[in-house]
């Protein structure tokens, strides 16, 4: 256990000491939050007003809903993209020969693999916590409608999504052996994931076939959960402003708080189940890949 903790500590420390990796990772969510507010804030505000066109709606309510959307989108993207950056340590160890050096010691290779996983999870979670903190300040300034329950659920969503992101990045990074490779993958994930998980654009605004296709990706369910828990309070508060229930539900649909899969509503527990199962399957795949690598090495010994 002490060995595992020590390996995890080493991996985390390496990430935080590498200023070239740590600072961009830390700044990325903050920059993303700023970009969201600066470039997309008005788009979402207009979108909210257009849904309730003809009904009076206060600026505070609009700001609260927009802030909830921005924060949930930010967390959904960070939980996965930061995991890919955090997993750089595993690839670097392989590229520099330090992985070989680790295996000259009596430590079990499985323990080394587990330590990378835990460290990636912890690092990603820490950076997501910073993003959540910054985002909550913004939400507080824009209009606070979050209940304690919603906030706790949003934290749970982030933890689960981080677990999923860690598992996904561990499987992908398992095949990478160079810094260039991991940088390339990070670039692709950073560019594409926000669109693929419904963070940058609500799924409801996409064509039906694309929306249904994206619902096959587990990350989408995590984004949906975050949207629900960080926007539900703000959208629900519209009832107090005299907005009809049908319009409120329409707004929830429009901002992916109510996900559908081929026209059928996806209950919240299903979203949790899909995300948790996806994380478990990816973890199992990671374990399988690690053991196959070990078994291959064993077979070579006999041949």
């Amino acid at each position: 256990m002490k060995t595992l903790l020590s390996l995890v500590e080493r991996n985390c420390k390496l990430f935080f000491r590498d200023k070239g990796t740590f600072f961009p990772s830390l700044l990325a969510p903050l920059i993303l939050l700023f970009l969201f507010i600066a470039f997309l804030g008005n788009v979402y505000r207009d979108s909210i007003r257009s849904i309730v066109a003809g009904f009076p709606i206060s600026d505070g309510a609009v700001e609260g809903i927009a802030a909830g959307w921005l924060l949930s989108s930010l967390l959904a993207v960070c939980a996965v993209t930061i995991a890919f950056t955090a997993n750089t340590i595993m690839v670097q160890d392989r590229a520099t020969g330090r992985a070989k050096d680790l295996l000259v010691s009596p430590v079990q290779p499985a323990l080394v693999a587990l330590a990378y996983f835990i460290a990636t999870f912890l690092v990603t979670l820490m950076i997501c916590a910073v993003a959540l903190g910054a985002g909550l300040i913004y939400v507080g300034a824009a209009g606070w409608h979050l209940t304690a329950e919603d906030l706790c659920l949003a934290v749970a969503d982030t933890v689960l999504l981080t677990l999923f992101g860690t598992a996904l990045s561990s499987v992908v990074c398992h095949f990478l052996h160079s810094q260039g490779g991991v940088t390339g993958v990070q670039a692709i994930v950073s560019a594409a994931y926000g669109f693929l998980c419904g963070a940058y654009m609500p799924l409801d605004s996409l064509t039906d076939w694309l929306k249904d296709a994206l619902m096959f990706l587990p990350g989408t369910y995590g984004t949906g959960l975050l949207h629900t828990h960080l926007m539900d309070g703000a959208i629900g508060a519209l009832a107090g402003e005299g907005i009809p229930e049908a319009l409120i539900e329409g707004m929830k649909d429009g901002f992916d708080c109510n996900l559908t899969f081929f026209g059928s509503a996806v209950p919240e527990w299903t979203s949790y189940l899909v995300l948790a199962l996806a994380a478990l399957v990816l973890i199992a795949l990671y374990v399988l890949l690690c053991s196959v690598r070990l078994r291959r090495s064993g077979k070579r010994k006999i041949s």
Partner: peptide, 13 residues
Amino acid sequence: DNLKYRAALYSIT
């Protein structure tokens, strides 16, 4: 740190 983390691999803590 380099020495500490290496020693931990041999359960020397």
